[in-house]
């Protein structure tokens, strides 16, 4: 064997070892769950074998059959079809909260860190005050005032979560701002906007993505709870939180599958987002 080949296999072995250390099976499973959930959220209505909204009261809580793998729900609707269709409403709310929060949070954090002084003080104390509202409470309040549905709770949760995002990002932006390369760019006469957009924010991107991932999980838990309480997505629309609630009577009557299956969908997706978010955060920290 030539020396070159020996070096190459050594490098390959090190490369393989490095890869194995970095990408854990847990991470792959989490990513797969998220990809699958996203696919179902997009294509759910096409995948559903039956009409998810067609009630058939003679099939009240009929259990699993070969044609209807998860059986029927409290109104005799196909549970599997409702789960597949419900993925969309269950995922689109958290997506909205995440997008609004990250945009607003990053904007407030970067401008506060960049300008400092009184502006920073005002933004920071403003964020501290918004901390006074627990997310769920603000969502219930918004739903009471503006009517039940997806929009009011999503906006309320976005407001309630923005301080959490902005506080972490502001710290990161302050650290980044103190780096010599920023001063070098300023000396060269680059505008603040250009430095922030082209250098500062891209350098914080790993943290932004990690936070967005974790936030999605939290928002999903809260929005599902709001739906469960009857203040979010309204029945008969298929939504995982709504499904837990409308089939809860089945738990006591011995037909736990419909309610549990919807709960399981929420938990699996949320756990996947939390694990992915945690790992992304760790990798971002390790790279620094």
């Amino acid at each position: 064997m030539s020396v070159g080949a020996g070096l190459a296999t050594g490098a390959w072995r090190r490369y393989r070892a490095g890869r194995q250390r970095r990408v854990s099976p847990l991470l792959i499973i989490s990513a797969a769950v998220i990809v699958a959930a996203t696919f179902v959220a997009i294509a759910g209505p096409l995948l559903a074998p039956y009409n998810p909204d067609l009630p058939n009261l003679s099939q009240y809580f009929v259990g699993s059959t070969p044609d209807h793998l998860l059986g029927y729900d409290a109104q005799g609707r196909d549970v599997l079809s409702r789960l597949l269709v419900g993925a969309r409403t269950s995922m689109i709310g958290p997506l909205g909260v995440t997008l609004i929060c990250m945009t607003l949070g990053a904007l407030l954090a970067v401008t506060a860190a960049w300008r400092g002084g009184a502006y920073d003080a005002v933004i920071s104390s403003g964020l501290d005050i918004v901390f006074a509202f627990p997310g769920i409470l603000l969502a219930v309040l918004a739903s009471a005032v503006f009517g039940a549905g997806l929009v009011a709770p999503v906006l309320a949760l976005s407001v309630a979560y923005t301080p959490y995002v902005a506080r972490v990002l502001r710290g990161a932006a302050l650290r980044e701002r103190a780096q010599p390369y920023i001063a070098a760019l300023e000396v060269q006469g680059a505008s603040a906007t250009a430095i922030c957009m082209r250098h500062l924010i891209p350098n914080m991107l790993h943290l932004i993505i990690a936070q967005a991932t974790t936030l999605f999980g939290y928002a999903m838990v809260d929005l599902a709870a709001i739906s469960y309480l009857g203040l979010g997505i309204q029945p008969p629309a298929a939504d995982w939180g709504v499904m837990v609630s409308e089939n809860q009577q089945g738990i006591i009557q011995g037909f736990a599958t419909p309610s549990l299956a919807a709960g399981l969908c929420i938990v699996v997706v949320v756990v996947a987002f939390n694990i992915l978010g945690e790992r992304l955060y760790e990798r971002g920290e390790a790279r620094r």
Binding site: A224, V267, V271
Partner: peptide, 14 residues
């Protein structure tokens, strides 16, 4: 790791 992401109402029905 799993129970940290368990929503209270899902824990409740279980």
């Amino acid at each position: 790791a799993i129970s940290a992401s368990l929503p209270a109402f899902v824990a409740a029905i279980v």
